[in-house]
């Protein structure tokens, strides 16, 4: 669906993309994670043929964005960082305009506009000028515009960065709906790790124009944090000499305390029963044992630490 090979792009002396390679498969939600200035927006612009790369090759739908930019843009939808909508026009007028320049046939257009307005819960205020809309509503209009021509591929550039938590959740739900219905491919840029965790099938972590790692969150976790992490709650006070007794325990790599909770990194799932038995025989009164999945946040910060990035 999307393929980038060794793409570089500089603006003056700033190297925005530095040998970027990645591939996005049809139907997946792909997350490009990175801090401010990592090159996320630049990547989207390149893929839409807004400017050429300095070197490397890229393709979208198997087409070269520089040569067939308008074909690509006709089949892809985009939600830009700022909504880029006309505030003096109503939601409906905005959508009709974009529908017309996207080449939706005249007969279908009114129906399409009606459908997206309905999907995003905007019918009631469709005829009001956008100037009076809240940020969350504008974002929904912008999403409606991105979907208007029923694109196979959707670029979302920080879809929730300016929204409050509730609107952000709503938008996330909408994104999930959009990806499920119609099997669209979604290319999501974000620095919101929780959002990526919730939505993405696969992610790539981008920093200073380079990919630090890519794969499913589980793959990344396995590569960075081999083994399992277990949370164990126990009643206070913890038995004395616990650390000494645990030292002989098989498979235990590290232990951290967060109040009454021990965070243990073990080599394997099979090491859990032995470790619990050791704790019990040491006199610990255990109330909860739970393997904890590694969060994308931990992965992200670990990656950046490994590559000498500042956290």
């Amino acid at each position: 669906m999307i393929q980038l090979d060794c793409v570089t792009k500089s603006f003056g002396t700033t190297r925005a993309l530095d040998g970027l390679s990645l591939a996005v498969r049809p139907g997946e939600i792909f997350g490009l994670l990175g801090p401010n200035g990592a090159g996320k927006t630049t990547t989207i612009r390149l893929l839409n043929g807004l400017f050429p790369p300095d070197s490397g090759s890229l393709s979208v739908f198997g087409m070269d964005p520089q040569k067939q930019g308008s074909e690509i843009r006709a089949r892809a939808g985009i939600l830009t960082e700022t909504p880029a909508l006309y505030e003096r026009l109503s939601a409906e007028e905005n959508l009709l305009f974009f529908g017309n320049i996207c080449g939706i046939s005249q007969q279908k257009l009114v129906q399409c506009v009606f459908e997206v307005l309905d999907l995003f819960g905007l019918e009631a205020r469709a005829k009001e000028r956008l100037a009076g809309f809240s940020k969350g509503m504008k974002q929904r209009v912008a999403l409606a515009r991105a979907l208007l021509h029923d694109p196979e591929l959707l670029f979302l550039d920080e879809p929730t960065s300016s929204l409050d938590p509730e609107s952000a959740l709503q938008v996330n739900d909408l994104i999930r709906t959009i990806s499920r219905d119609g099997g669209r491919t979604i290319f999501l840029c974000t620095h919101n790790l929780l959002e990526a965790q919730r939505l993405c099938d696969r992610v790539a972590v981008l920093d200073a124009g380079k990919i630090l790692a890519s794969g499913t969150p589980a793959e990344l976790a396995a590569a960075l944090f081999p083994g399992v992490r277990v949370e164990i709650d126990m009643e206070a006070p913890a038995p004395v000499n616990l650390a000494e007794k645990l030292a002989v325990c098989q498979g235990l790599r590290s232990i951290q305390w967060e109040g009454g909770t021990a965070l243990m990194d073990l080599a394997d799932h099979a090491d859990i029963p032995g470790m619990v038995a050791t704790l019990v025989s040491a006199g610990a009164r255990i109330t909860r044992v739970e393997p904890r999945p590694v969060s994308l946040e931990e992965i992200y910060f670990q990656l950046r630490k490994n590559h000498g990035g500042h956290t």
Binding site: S70, R73, T80, A84, I101
Partner: peptide, 14 residues
């Protein structure tokens, strides 16, 4: 000025 140009640039127009 109103930052709406970007929406046009991403449209399938030439």
């Amino acid at each position: 000025e109103r930052k709406t140009l970007e929406g046009l640039l991403y449209s399938p127009t030439t």
